[in-house]
């Protein structure tokens, strides 16, 4: 009971602190802007821990954050091996293949107005489909190692990147294209100096959507067959052993990997499209 009361107390204290911080005079400082969500997140984790202890929740249902942390610290080498297998091999390779393929198709299709008009609706339609359902089929075709995961990821990220790139390449106005023509620029100089740069915000939008899809694809595909390493494999086997703290440790790794991947893309976007209004 003590734990539960303490949990309510901490929740109230965290909320009060955030109330003071975000309505106070220093609310516009960067430090405060970071501190407020951090306090909120920390409060949730502490309340979670206290609730689990207070109600003596069975660790098979919901493990306490401290035991997840302990797993993270103890099983570092296993988690690292899983990370390498799933993120660095499956997700990243598939992402790069899918992105390059989408890019190539977009630039080819872009030469014909007719194809562009066809690809945009079809690609947009495909992007909304449950493509992850092809995972069992692709695992069967390509075997259970990381190649099949990379294939699932490549198919999943292909369509969002394709649609965004094609849409981006159309995003120049007649005045800009005319200017290039007065410089006597041919197709390729126009593509590299005008249309690709102005398509960059769209392309990065597609690439950022792809980061989450890549991790989802790589992990889900491992549920259908994998070598004895990998995040999806670990999640499903630890789950079978009722080691929920290990499952949550993998979740934390997946969340960190997902945010880092997305963050990296955003960082590159900032460097490349520094001129765009949304970045200034």
């Amino acid at each position: 009971m003590m734990y539960v009361l303490l949990a309510f107390g901490i929740w109230a204290a965290g909320w009060w602190l955030n109330l003071r911080l975000s309505n106070g005079s220093s609310a516009e400082l960067t430090a405060v802007k970071i501190a407020v969500p951090a306090i909120f997140g920390l409060t949730i984790v502490i309340v979670w821990e206290l609730m689990v202890r207070g109600f003596e929740v069975n660790p098979v249902i919901l493990p306490a954050p401290t035991s997840v942390l302990a797993r993270l610290a103890d099983e570092g080498s296993i988690l690292w091996a899983d990370f390498k297998q799933t993120v660095l091999k499956g997700a990243l390779v598939g992402y790069i293949i899918g992105a390059i393929a989408a890019f190539a198709v977009a630039i080819l299709a872009d030469r014909s107005e007719f194809l562009t008009r066809g690809i945009l609706p079809v690609g947009g339609f495909m992007a909304a489909l449950p493509i992850v359902g092809t995972a069992p089929i692709l695992v069967k075709w390509l075997g259970s190692d990381w190649e099949s995961k990379a294939a699932v990821v490549a198919v999943m990220v292909f369509f969002p990147i394709l649609v965004n790139t094609v849409a981006g390449l159309k995003d120049t106005n007649a005045m800009q294209r005319d200017l290039m023509r007065t410089y006597a620029a041919g197709y390729w100089p126009t593509l590299f100096k005008l249309r690709l740069p102005s398509a960059a915000p769209f392309i990065f939008n597609g690439l950022k959507i792809g980061t989450t899809l890549a991790l989802i694809g790589a992990i889900v595909a491992e549920f259908f067959g994998s070598p004895t390493v990998g995040m999806g494999f670990r999640i499903s086997t630890s789950f079978g052993q009722l080691a929920l703290d290990m499952v949550w440790a993998e979740i934390v790794v997946a969340a960190l990997a997902g945010s880092a991947f997305y963050g990296a893309m955003t960082w590159v976007e900032k460097r490349v499209t520094f001129w765009h209004p949304s970045q200034r």
Binding site: M231, I235, I251, A254, S259, Y262
Partner: peptide
């Protein structure tokens, strides 16, 4: 941030 987390992968669990 939660949109960048591959939460879908945990659906079966």
């Amino acid at each position: 941030v939660s949109q960048t987390i591959p939460i879908l992968a945990l659906a079966p669990m």
